[in-house]
């Protein structure tokens, strides 16, 4: 498998595992948007404006170890101008996020098999570009994904909760 494709699939499986744990349904319909890789839907938010909210993700996976700025507490990720524009702003009917997964440089280190569990490496972080400003950059924009914003199953549920109000986390 092409290494890039391998990262994409790993990232997809990683996020889908979190969503499954959170009890979210993956949206099966083909997502006709090249800046969205996966979408999740949930039901039962009765009493909220939206009873069946939906959230969407653009997934980015990298094995580059120099993206993390430990001092600033962020991942500096270079997004294409198109992806940036497609994720930016709040004129979307379903909230959308960027999710960045950093994997170890060595493929063997992506998964650890243990007797009672497996572990996926490393962590995935999320970012909303709802408030992001327009840019004059032609090719790309470097976004800062806070290391404090780890994507977890609980976080997905929080995102869904906000989405039931038509809002972002």
């Amino acid at each position: 498998m092409d290494p890039q494709k391998q990262k994409e699939q790993f990232n997809y499986a990683y996020v889908c595992a979190l969503a499954a744990h959170a009890g979210l349904n993956r949206v099966d319909s083909p997502v006709d948007d090249d800046s969205i890789d996966v979408a999740f839907k949930s039901r039962g938010y009765h009493g909220r404006p939206i009873r069946s909210p939906q959230i969407e993700f653009q997934l980015k996976c990298s094995a580059q170890q120099n993206l993390v700025d430990e001092v600033g507490g962020v991942i500096k990720y270079k997004l294409s101008r198109k992806n940036y524009d497609d994720l930016r702003g709040d004129d979307f009917a379903a909230p959308r996020y960027l999710a960045v997964l950093l994997v170890p440089a060595e493929l063997e280190a992506w998964i650890a098999h243990n007797d009672e569990h497996i572990a996926l490496f490393n962590s995935c972080y999320w970012l909303s570009l709802k408030e992001a400003e327009p840019t004059d950059n032609e090719e790309s924009v470097t976004v800062h994904v806070p290391l404090a914003q780890r994507l977890t199953s609980a976080k997905l549920l929080e995102m869904m909760d906000r989405a039931s109000h038509g809002e972002w986390l």
């Binding site: 997502v31 006709d32 948007d33 004129d91 979307f92 009917a93 379903a94």
Partner: peptide
């Protein structure tokens, strides 16, 4: 959920 025509994710919505 019926989007307004000018939203960015109109087509998918």
């Amino acid at each position: 959920v019926l989007p307004f025509p000018y939203v960015k994710d109109f087509r998918q919505r």
